[in-house]
Design a binder for these strands. Structure first.
Length: 606
DNA sequence: GCTCTTGTAAACATTT
DNA sequence: AAAATGTTTACAAGAG
């Protein structure tokens, strides 16, 4: 309901505390100082108490991320168990040979797919480097893209898989003839009991889920408290992308056996989940590094003479704290791939904006030529981000870009209108005034642009971004290798959804995200999510013999026959929007936004 | 000057 | 009934 997030945000500031994902927490961390700084000394004045606070918040965030990882691992293990067929003996008994054959075929296909994805990512990375958007120093910490972008060979994937599962690969890999395919083998045919995993996972012994890898699983499952099943919670099946409502645990088990038995889809989902876990771990490592760098940086800064943050280089201004640990081009859509996206020229306009000139009220007609789209310097990124949070300077970005950014920053890639409002007010001091004006503009833009898709939810409606549509608005330079993409499109039946997701994700990445520290690596996160969502949703519909995705029908539409913008399907749209978002699972915990309109001043007075 | 894009305002309908 | 949300139209301005 539209009241939901709004009233929650207005009446209860504690909504920020219970975000389900690390990103929410970290996001709050990233904006921690916002509430402390006044408009004049927003960025640098960090006292010891503040620092301690930040540290605590970061630690909490890491803790949450860790838990998230554990959950992911548990989920993954559950899926493995499912895929291994231990819970569906009927199917196993019926056609074990056939299944093995299928699995083997699928392994090959998926391996192929993974390699292609990695190549594509690598290509994309190289392109970014060439464009000067990425600068990789020899001694620099690994880029977020690297794990995939480096084109991991199967053995590397296997190594990752080992690290993720921490245990139950040793026996399996040794017993496997084709070691390069172990990634899938371990996932699909894990019939060997794993004892080490019990040691590795502190949660395993408590919820009894790790024994799923043992033949004793069935007996152990009786000992499980009904609600401790990692794939079951709040009466909903937690299988990625499922969310089927199961009234009680037995019905859930029934559902699990019926809907998530060993089949192509489950197998693929399991593998994707593996990737997700891997990426999350990498993200966690990254965020740890970032935290360290942040603390180091702040310690240094706090001893330096204060200087008012000046967005001398607004090009990099709206990028959140990524500067300390990596050079990934995390900024608002200002890259050569979005040539006409407005941008504040470095040498034009309010090159130096002081707090006295900040109150730019009233209509400002500015368009920024892409010729000012210079490579992004990551030097004062964090400062400028703080700057916009605290100074009432109109951000040099279009409403459409901002809305898109708000949506893409959200974990679910979907936001209610009110959440979009909140993002605006949270990120830009400018939007804490004249609410009627810019809110109207936001609504206007949401309705006007085809790239914004309204998706009806159980609780109301959320807005998502149709990345393909967004890209259509501004012709982009090809950042990937078209032939490679083309090549991918003809490789396998599964390639269709995967490629679509990958391409969309890369298209998105070609517009570097104005990401939060929490997202750490939106690239990989989006990619993983995209692939997972695609697998979850599209495979149900395209797992047939169709080697090409049916045009004009987006995965999301296929997944959720919900109301989207009702427009006559003009031929131009025949290729169909590709939406990478999940719908209808908008978590209430996600409503962490605060409504500044109710407390615009208190924000700074706290 | 034309076209396109964007911002702003406003009217109106629908939903909550 | 009021507020929020969503759609649509109109107009102005900047930029190519």
């Amino acid at each position: 309901m539209m009241q939901d997030s709004g009233t929650e945000a207005k009446s209860n500031g504690s909504a920020i505390q219970n975000g389900p994902s690390s990103s929410n927490h970290l996001l709050e961390c990233s904006s921690l100082r916002e509430g402390r700084s006044n408009g004049e000394t927003p960025a640098v004045d960090v006292g010891a108490a503040d620092l301690t606070h930040i540290q605590q918040q970061q630690q909490q965030a890491i803790q949450v991320a860790r838990q998230l990882l554990l959950q992911q691992q548990q989920q993954q293990q559950q899926q493995q168990q499912q895929v291994s067929g231990l819970k569906s003996p009927k199917r196993n008994d019926k056609q074990p040979a056939l299944q093995q054959q299928q699995v083997a075929t699928q392994q090959l296909a998926f391996q192929q797919q993974l390699l292609q994805m990695q190549q594509l990512q690598h290509q994309h990375l190289l392109t970014l480097q060439r464009q000067g958007l990425l600068t990789i120093q020899p001694g620099q910490p690994a880029l977020p893209l690297q794990p995939l972008a480096q084109g991991m060979i199967p053995t590397e994937l296997q190594q990752l898989w080992k690290e993720v599962t921490n245990a139950h690969t040793a026996e399996e890999t040794t017993g496997n003839n084709h070691s390069s395919l172990d990634l899938t083998t371990t996932c699909v045919s894990s019939s060997v009991p794993s004892k080490t995993s019990l040691l590795m996972n502190p949660h395993a012994s408590t919820n009894g889920q790790l024994p799923v890898h043992t033949p004793k699983r069935e007996s152990l499952s009786h000992e499980e408290p009904p609600h401790s099943h990692p794939l079951y919670g709040h009466g909903v099946c937690k299988w990625p992308g499922c969310e089927a409502v199961c009234e009680d645990f037995p019905s859930f088990l029934k559902h699990l056996n019926n809907e998530h038995a060993l089949d192509d889809r489950s197998t693929a989902q399991c593998r994707v989940q593996m990737q997700v876990v891997q990426q999350l771990e990498l993200q966690l490592a990254k965020d740890k590094e970032r935290l360290q760098a942040m603390m180091t940086h702040l310690h240094v800064k706090s001893t330096e003479p204060k200087a008012a943050p000046q967005p001398l280089n607004l090009v990099s201004s709206v990028t959140l704290s990524k500067s300390t640990s990596e050079a990934s081009p995390q900024s608002l859509p200002h890259t050569p791939t979005t040539p006409t996206t407005p941008i504040t020229p470095v040498t034009q306009g309010p090159s130096v904006i002081t707090t006295t000139s900040m109150h730019t009220v009233g209509p400002i007609r500015r368009r920024y030529s892409d010729k000012y789209n210079v490579p992004i310097s990551s030097a004062d990124i964090a400062q400028n981000q703080e700057f916009y949070k605290n100074a009432e300077v109109r951000p040099p970005f279009t409403y459409a870009s901002l809305i898109r950014q708000a949506i893409l920053e959200s974990p679910e890639k979907q936001l209610t209108l009110n959440e979009i409002y909140n993002w605006f007010t949270r990120m830009f001091a400018y939007f804490r005034r004249n609410a009627a004006t810019w809110k109207n503009a936001v609504r206007h833009n949401l309705s006007l642009h085809k790239c914004f898709v309204r998706v009806e939810n159980v609780k109301g409606a959320v807005w998502t971004v149709d990345e393909v549509e967004f890209q259509k608005r501004r012709p982009q330079k090809i950042s990937g290798n078209p032939s490679l993409i083309k090549n991918m499109q003809s490789s396998h039946a599964y390639c269709t959804p995967l490629n679509a997701a990958l391409q969309a994700s890369m298209a998105e990445n070609s517009i570097p995200l104005y990401t939060t520290a929490s997202m750490g690596n939106p690239t990989l996160g989006n990619l993983a999510n995209a692939i997972r969502e695609e697998l979850n949703g599209v495979m149900e519909h395209t797992n047939s013999n169709e080697s090409d995705s049916s045009p004009g029908r987006s995965p999301m539409q296929a997944m959720h026959p919900v109301h989207v913008k009702e427009e006559p399907l003009d031929p131009e749209e025949a290729e169909g929007p590709l939406s990478l978002v999940t719908t209808a699972n908008h978590s209430p915990d996600f409503d962490h936004d605060r409504d500044y309109e109710d407390e615009p001043v208190n924000e700074d007075m706290e």
